[in-house]
Design a binder for these strands. Structure first.
Lengths: 357, 357
DNA sequence: CTGAAAGCGCTTACAG
DNA sequence: CTGAAAGCGCTTACAG
């Protein structure tokens, strides 16, 4: 290793030396803070430009470490047997938390039950009461989410929406998938796999389907493709508001009995493993099965060839990125330009090994 | 924001206070450096454990900034009209460089021409002559690469292989795709798309096909799938060592004239746009086309529905991650556990908009 | 074997 | 409007 010398050429110190002012004054100009005469300011600005000064982020953060605690409130579904999906975003959030807690960021978790609107409402109130410098939410229930967004707006608290969006509301940004396109992509894959004279079965499995913005949006995208490129006549569908295996199996029995040409089944969420279990039990290896999310149970069926395609939108990264965005915004006043739309990944038995949430 | 106080509880300072020693001594223990009596060391170790001390990475790096320059040598194909692919890894490398140059890392670039072994050999010699603290290479030509690897081993210089691997050589790690699996996945996609009585055309377009480890490996994976799940009788293939459009078009004309049942064409590298151009010119919209890499020209054909699938392995991330791995290893002595195999991504006209290299 | 002191590059009260 | 000084948490010559 050679000795380095060139860093003497940049830095606040060098700027101060050239401008014949103190480092504090340079700092004021860099951060556009008041209290500097125009003349001095112009002189310093010129030097900054000339040197193409880039702040040392490390040093910035380190210096900031002495400041107060930043409180982030995170509202998302709790992880349970039935909702394993939410483990991934939580992991991403925890990873971000671990990275930034030494810079004085504290993350407060508020969990809710996707089947229980009351808990959601209560947690929203708790966030408002406890206070927070930044908020991250999964807006499962829209009216209550809007209440929180309004509160944030009134108190200029930045709020990141994750996983699904709420139309027409002011927020710092949305981080998650473009659900319509995700449904559209699924339909495209179906199209590639569909043989002549075959039909497609669309299955929705969720307790509150009409209130589930994600399912509705994905389905819209899916239908849009068929409308445009094929025909809606090829579609058969059913809903199951019961999410247990027996209920789903029973409905599948009926539908597959009457519809003999079903070649592909598309499940609009991560519950696809229920359908897989049924397909396996009745040994229908000829049917192609598609659904959502890199969950352990889904991957097992993928490996065995029962599930053919899983669509996945990097849930862990969603969590990580959401927290980091709030952090950057609050601590470094980093401009947030726009929403961050996740890639829509296609997983099969041949590439799941290399996938990273 | 609240005032923070809890950070007083951890940190080198606090450990030193409790152990009644200086911070320097604590530092010695933390980094397992010699020159501390067993008694003192044990006392300090116990306190470190008790406090579950986690070093502040920011402060570490900042303190290290005063040390010498770390020189990284990067050997990879130059970017040209014909090899646009290499822009992406280069971008990743530059991004990493920008992030870490303020910590005293200097990146020296050595470009070569994939069609010219002599240049490669010359650049290898140059790296050896100029010296480097860490090396990152794309081992396009194997014997010359092995020479460099041997030199690195002899001088204990860490070397990262990127994009393709060299078997049986000692190196810090390999960062890139599992090419066999990538070919296997392609075959699986083909299988989903193939209609009855259709055949598959495999096309290799490259100047030195027999020397191109990447193409060979992908093809092996592709064939393995057909061997296992379908039949090699379904395969037709040809090579073109000329990489201009006319040569490729001519061969395609001949093959497609004689083989009437071709339903899918699989191109083993990013040259797929040449085939796309031909397909478009002869208006063969019925044929499904698959190939590699998120290049501008490929994406154009993808949008228009001429190319159906592109396989992509995050080339930009490969570059970024390779440099960062060397950086972490050299500057923080971070253990490198194993190779990093990239995800194998599937891109279609429905999800390309959200893809990030 | 151990410690006092200076330094990494930036920020922030505080004093004037 | 401006500056001197202390501090963020860690590392490193240097002296003993």
């Amino acid at each position: 290793m050679e000795q380095k010398e060139d860093n003497l050429l940049s830095g606040v110190k060098e700027i101060a030396r050239r401008a014949k002012v103190s480092r504090a004054t340079v700092d004021r100009v860099i951060h556009n803070r008041p209290g500097v005469s125009k003349k001095t300011k112009d002189r310093i600005t010129a030097i900054i430009e000339e040197l193409d000064y880039q702040p040392n982020v490390l040093a910035q953060r380190l210096a900031l470490a002495s400041r107060g605690i930043v409180k982030l409130a995170v509202l998302l579904p709790g992880v349970s047997e039935e909702t394993e999906y939410w483990k991934a975003p939580l992991e991403g959030i925890s990873r971000a938390e671990a990275e930034i807690k030494q810079y004085g960021v504290q993350v407060d978790y508020y969990f809710f039950d996707q089947n229980d609107k009351a808990v959601f409402a209560r947690q929203v109130q708790l966030i408002i009461d406890n206070g927070a410098d930044g908020v991250l939410i999964t807006p499962t229930f829209e009216p209550e989410s809007i209440k929180l967004l309004a509160h944030c707006k009134a108190h200029t608290i930045p709020c990141v929406l994750m996983n699904s969006d709420v139309a027409g509301q002011q927020r710092l940004c949305y981080i998650g998938p473009e659900l319509f396109e995700s449904g559209y992509l699924s339909a495209q894959l179906v199209d590639y796999c569909l043989k002549e004279d075959q039909k497609v079965l669309v299955v929705n499995i969720a307790r509150e389907i009409e209130n589930n913005a994600a399912i509705i949006r994905k389905q819209e995208g899916f239908l849009a493709y068929f409308d445009k490129k094929l025909s809606k006549d090829l579609l058969v569908s059913f809903n199951s508001t019961d999410t247990d295996y027996e209920s789903v199996a029973e409905k599948l029995n009926v539908v597959l009995e009457t519809q003999k040409q079903i070649g592909v089944i598309y499940v609009t969420n991560s519950r696809v493993s229920l359908v897989a279990r049924w397909l396996e039990s009745v040994s229908r290896k000829d049917i192609i099965l598609m659904g959502y999310d890199y969950l352990r149970s889904n991957i097992e069926f993928l490996k065995r060839g029962v599930i053919d395609f899983l669509i996945c939108e990097k849930p862990q990264e969603q969590g990580y990125r959401s927290v980091m965005t709030l952090f950057q915004f609050l601590v470094f006043s980093t401009q947030v330009k726009e929403d961050y739309l996740m890639p829509i990944d296609i997983i099969t038995s041949a590439n799941y090994k290399f996938y990273r949430n």
